[in-house]
């Protein structure tokens, strides 16, 4: 039986990282998974939830549940942060006993962050990728602490042929994105980003890998501002690269 999944592309993924999304589809299909794309999807409500607007978040969550509730297929997303929202915070948005709560509980169990889906559902750790570059890994907060995925991405990256992984000092320290935090307190965000960028520069890697669009925007921007040519890439972009497809497609970032 072929596995089917619904793609949950997330706002930031859609607006800024289309090649990550394409890579996700390519890779899933390479692994024999059939992708569905619910076209009505918009935002999961996380930015609102995280800034205290729970009633707005609740409305968006309701729409999201309707959109993804149409199919029984598992939901896969390139963002740990948005999966964390669906898995943990949706339950808090709706009081126990309401139909939305029941729906949230059911859907939380079949919503996966991408690396989690590969390692724990498909039981794959070697996706047959080829990527002959020196990279370093930043552990995105919501993948790591939100979803408790400490080893999955590294396991997958560890099996990529040609890839050399250089340890990052402060790997598990937040890069200073934090969604609304980055614009509410830009100076603290700046200080946190500066620490992260310095540590990345010290590795001598060609790229830094992370598993959340927010970190990529922040770290990628920080590296660019620092005049560095190191790029911030998504785990998926590396896993999707093979000898035949020529690796990374992305342009300026």
């Amino acid at each position: 039986m072929t596995q089917k999944v619904q793609l949950f592309i997330t706002c930031l993924g859609e607006q800024f990282y289309p090649t990550v999304l394409e890579g996700m589809v390519t890779l899933l299909e390479r692994l024999g998974v059939e992708c569905q794309f619910p076209n009505a999807q918009t935002c999961c409500g996380q930015p609102f939830y995280n800034s205290g607007f729970q009633s707005e978040a609740g409305k968006l969550a309701k729409t999201w549940l309707q959109t993804f509730g149409q199919s029984e297929a598992p939901i896969v997303s390139p963002s740990g942060s948005c999966v964390n929202m669906v898995r943990h915070h949706y339950l808090e948005l709706f009081p126990a006993g309401t139909p939305e709560h029941a729906q949230a509980v059911a859907i939380a169990q079949r919503t996966y962050e991408f690396t989690e889906y590969l390692v724990h559902v498909l039981n794959v750790t070697d996706v047959g990728a080829y990527f002959p570059h020196k990279v370093t890994y930043h552990a995105s907060c919501h993948v790591l602490r939100g979803l408790g995925l400490r080893t999955e991405a590294k396991q997958l990256l560890g099996a990529v042929r040609g890839l050399e992984m250089i340890p990052l000092n402060g790997e598990e320290t937040c890069c200073g994105f934090g969604g609304v935090f980055s614009v509410v307190y830009p100076e603290i965000s700046r200080a946190m980003l500066r620490d992260k960028v310095q540590n990345i520069l010290a590795t001598g890697a060609e790229m830094v890998v992370a598993s959340d669009a927010g970190c990529l925007m922040n770290i990628g921007g920080g590296l660019r501002k620092a005049g560095s040519s190191i790029r911030a890439v998504h785990t998926i972009e590396i896993l999707a690269a093979t000898e035949s497809n020529g690796g990374l497609k992305r342009g300026a970032q």
Binding site: I9, G13, E14, Q15, F16, P18, L21, E22, V25, F37, N39, S182, V183, V184, P186, S189, R190, L193, M217, N218, G220, G221, G222, R224, K225, A252, Q253
Partner: peptide, 23 residues
């Protein structure tokens, strides 16, 4: 403003959505 609260620290990535078209 108010997006300069972001760009005063680091550049903002360009909007480039095209996944839906690709799909």
């Amino acid at each position: 403003a108010p997006a300069n609260l972001w760009t005063k620290v680091r550049p903002f990535p360009a909007f480039r959505a095209n996944f839906r078209q690709w799909w």
